[in-house]
């Protein structure tokens, strides 16, 4: 039987799914063990047990000076920036994407511009944002918005253009105005694509968030990681990295679930 036609059964599939995770954990544990055996003071690869201990401390114990549990404050600050940034990006991408996809005038005006703008490396203009908006929240949110919006606009305008012409013409023959076509035909079919687009943009959004926080912030997950780097506190960094990964994964999962629940017709088939 050809390799392309072989697929694992359900138990084997679960084992295979777990395999890379287990392999990475095992490799880390062994590496950590070896280094610590040589030098108990080694800080590069803290033992898994120590990471767990640190994680529990970070999640439950307050800061010695202020008494606040910093990890939760960091999480709150970062998620707020992320939510505002991604929210603004999603709404403007939806508006511009639909306009470019539906209106020839908007397409002629904006398509080339968005194409060029999306090629500007966002991190390269971060200093400009800091100069214009100061070191506060606005510049961080702005970086996320500028970083992910152009790509989302391109994605959504392409998806809008993919709606079969027949469907638009059919709506026209039913007497629908441009606004009705936008609200009743295009928007409902674009919303699932918007969620897919947001899911794809979350990765870059996190990247821009952490980059902005690393450079200038007083609170935030990225800020904390770059702060404790000075003390080589690998256990704290790893805890934060795992926490961020978990958050990102949960967001992605929630969006997928939302898409399936809110748009049952996308999965409808004979």
């Amino acid at each position: 039987m050809r390799l392309i036609n072989r697929s694992p059964g359900r138990p084997a599939a679960l084992v295979l799914m777990a395999l890379p995770f287990v392999a990475v954990l095992a490799a880390y544990a062994i590496g950590s063990e070896v280094r610590l055996a040589e030098n108990p003071q080694d800080k590069l690869l803290p033992a898994p047990a120590q990471i767990l201990e640190t994680a529990i401390r970070l999640f439950t114990e307050g800061d010695r000076r202020s008494g606040r549990i910093l990890l939760w404050y960091d999480t709150g600050a970062s998620l707020a920036r992320l939510a505002i940034g991604v929210g603004i990006a999603a709404l403007s991408a939806l508006a511009f994407g639909m306009a470019i996809g539906m209106l020839p005038y908007a397409r002629r005006t904006l398509n080339a511009f968005v194409g060029v703008i999306s090629m500007v490396p966002p991190l390269a203009i971060l200093p400009i944002l800091f100069i214009i908006f100061g070191l506060g929240e606005v510049s961080k949110v702005a970086l996320i918005v500028i970083g992910i919006t152009p790509v989302m606009i391109r994605d959504l305008s392409a998806r809008t253009l993919e709606i079969p012409r027949e469907m638009i013409v059919k709506a026209e023959t039913l007497g629908a105005s441009s606004a009705v076509i936008a609200m009743r035909v295009v928007l409902p079919q674009i919303l699932p694509r918007l969620i897919a687009s947001v899911r794809l943009a979350l990765g870059p959004a996190w990247l821009f968030l952490i980059a902005a926080e690393a450079i200038a912030a007083q609170l935030g997950l990225g800020y904390r990681i770059f702060l404790v780097r000075r003390y080589l506190a690998m256990d704290v960094i790893l805890t934060y990295v795992i926490w961020i990964t978990l958050l990102a994964f949960l967001m992605d999962y929630a969006l997928r679930l939302l898409s399936r629940k809110a748009f049952p017709w996308t999965e409808a088939a004979l």
Binding site: K170, T173, G175, F263, W265
Partner: peptide
């Protein structure tokens, strides 16, 4: 196109989200 003319195409003539 307008309400004077009704149309049915080979495909894509109904709205999939309704």
């Amino acid at each position: 196109p307008g309400r004077e003319r009704g149309v049915v195409f080979q495909r894509y003539s109904v709205f999939p989200h309704m």
